[in-house]
Simulated assay, not measured.
Amino acid sequence: MLHASALLPLALLGGGVHEVRTGDAPKYSPPGLRVAAGDTVRWDASQRHPLAFEDGSGGPYDADHERTLTTPGKLAFYCLVHGAPGGAGMSGLVTVGDSNEAPSITLERETAEPRDGELVVFRALAGDPERLALRIAWDLDGDGRFDPHLGGVSAVARYGPGVHTVNARATDDLGLTADGRLTFTIPAPPAAPKPPSDASPPAAAPPAVTNADSAPAPTPQVHAARAIRLATVRRRGLRVTVTAAPPGRLSAELRDLRGRRLARVTATARSGTPVTMRLRAPRIRAGRARLVVRTADGRSISHPLIVRA
């Protein structure tokens, strides 16, 4: 027949020895531990880290100190130089027996303004009243199921446009849990501009045309040097002249071969009057580029350029 104590976990039988150490950093390792009644705890105390107990049970101690703890409960300790009662600074806690309180957890998003398809970084801020290590599990798609393969205080994922929910769960050494939730929105990308309708009325003709009702819309022309020296773009800018443009707002953009915009300028065109704009692009590099001009009636004109160093 088995003795009753043989059915108990080894940690609850008592008689074990545990160590709380100090190092170069002002903190205890571990900051919290759970022991069985009858276990012995040894503290690595010194003149640099004198040991004190919140219940005033002796000390402070400036040399290694040990105690055999027989009464269930909690024993808080701290460094007289680098800590203070209440868990401040260099401090720790020994829990004798199965006294336990539930952990706490909150979530924060480290990526400030995530966009469609961008990696979003999350962090769990979790704490345990017994100051013991916690297990963190994540549910990154908000379906209520925590992925056993996703652990640790941080996690990353990609999301499309819409409202999303992320959950995380903290579990302590005796199985008590706490859940945290974070909801955020990924904005939809801006809609592409609609092409001009074939049924839209033609743009007004310049005053120089006698019969404006029957004359076709003017075809804008762009004049720009095909080869631009880098110093010219940086100091004086690129001079762009648009002729025969319909009245309204004009824009000129300088883009690289990947389509990234390097410079942009706008102006207002008047009937029959050429418009001259100057583009400045201090970050442009030698190579091929493209000038894109958009007129008030929705048309765009693309002009290749060569930037020489």
Rank of each mutant, 00 (worst) to 15 (best):
K27M: 13
D55G: 01
G32Y: 12
E19G: 09
R21S: 02
L7A: 06
D24E: 10
G38Q: 08
S46C: 01
V41W: 04
V41S: 11
L33R: 14
R21Q: 04
L10T: 13
A52C: 01
G14F: 08
P30S: 13
D24A: 08
P9C: 10
D39F: 06
L33I: 13
D39E: 09
P30Q: 02
Y28R: 02
L7N: 13
R34W: 09
G38F: 00
A4S: 03
G59P: 10
W43C: 10
V20G: 10
A4Y: 01
L51Q: 11
A37N: 06
L12G: 05
A45E: 05
S57W: 06
Y28W: 14
E54K: 14
D39H: 00
G58Y: 15
S46H: 01
L10R: 14
R42L: 11
S57C: 08
S5I: 02
P30K: 01
S5C: 06
V20P: 13
R42K: 03
T40P: 02
D55T: 06
R21D: 00
L8W: 15
Q47V: 12
Q47D: 08
G16D: 14
A52H: 15
Q47W: 02
L51Y: 14
S29C: 12
L51K: 09
A6K: 03
P30R: 02
L13E: 11
